[in-house]
């Protein structure tokens, strides 16, 4: 599904991701954990095609296609999705209008207004969102938790093949966390892969990962099963740092 090799990313001349390899198979869920500033969001943004970053080395292959030259919208059409850590606000554009435009952009055949309406209703129900939400302006004045729910709503609407969730669980209360996990599990299946970026193993109890990776200073320094997440939560990152000698720049 997704294959990352020797990826190096710079921003404003500063290297943030320093040689990263990762493979996500079809139907797999991978978790990435790592301290603040280790480069998780940078990686997510680059996977989705953010123009501000410079990829200086390596490759990203998605469903057999090198995505290097592709703009974000083309990647979306290929089936990639990023649930943002900090979703942008778009004043004056309703959630419903946005969802309609987005869904019709990625689909080959446009949905009729009635089909669209039903789809939005159905997915909002799964996310336990008040139907009135559809008329609110995109992310404007949304609480942190509402923004995250809205991200997952978009994911359900767009039905991606690969979802990258950048700290979707941060700032959620227990109930919301379960709703978000439910949303992800809706899509879970042999055709759906995900990268779940998180600081807490709690969400991984609801969304069981196949692999857990630890990111430190721009590299994946160790990987394992979900027990690795438990160990991290218990012991913090210091032992990883000691063990894998991160912090020195190469």
């Amino acid at each position: 599904m997704l294959n990352i090799e020797g990826l190096r990313i710079e921003i404003d001349g500063q290297e943030i991701v320093k040689g990263l390899d990762m493979e996500v198979g079809t139907g797999e869920i991978h978790a990435i954990m790592g301290p603040n500033g280790s480069g998780k969001s940078t990686l997510s943004n680059v996977l989705m095609g953010h123009p501000r970053y410079d990829v200086t080395a390596g490759s990203i292959t998605f469903r057999g296609e090198d995505v290097f030259e592709l703009e974000a919208d083309e990647r979306a059409k290929l089936g990639m999705f990023l649930a943002f850590q900090y979703p942008s606000e778009v004043p004056g554009v309703s959630v419903a209008n946005f969802l309609r435009t987005a869904v019709n952009s990625v689909r080959e055949k446009e949905l009729s207004p009635m089909e669209m309406y039903k789809l939005i209703q159905e997915k909002m129900k799964i996310m336990q969102m008040d139907p009135k939400f559809a008329e609110r302006y995109l992310n404007e004045g949304f609480s942190g938790g509402e923004k995250k729910r809205n991200e997952i709503l978009q994911m359900l609407m767009l039905e991606p093949k690969l979802a990258i969730m950048d700290e979707t669980d941060s700032g959620l209360d227990i109930d919301a966390l379960q709703v978000v996990a439910k949303g992800v599990n809706e899509l879970r299946g042999p055709e759906f892969s995900a990268i779940v970026i998180t600081h807490y193993q709690r969400i991984l109890r609801y969304i069981e990962p196949d692999r857990v990776h630890v990111m430190l200073d721009g590299r994946l320094v160790t990987s394992g099963g979900k027990e690795l997440a438990d160990a991290l939560e218990e012991k913090g990152y210091d032992w990883v740092r000691q063990e894998f000698g991160a912090g020195t720049h190469s």
Binding site: N45, A72, D73, A76, F84, P87, S88
Partner: peptide, 17 residues
Amino acid sequence: GEDQLFYLMSRGLSEEA
């Protein structure tokens, strides 16, 4: 903003859209 555009484009909208 660049981030705003990226957000919309990541949902399949072309830059112009």
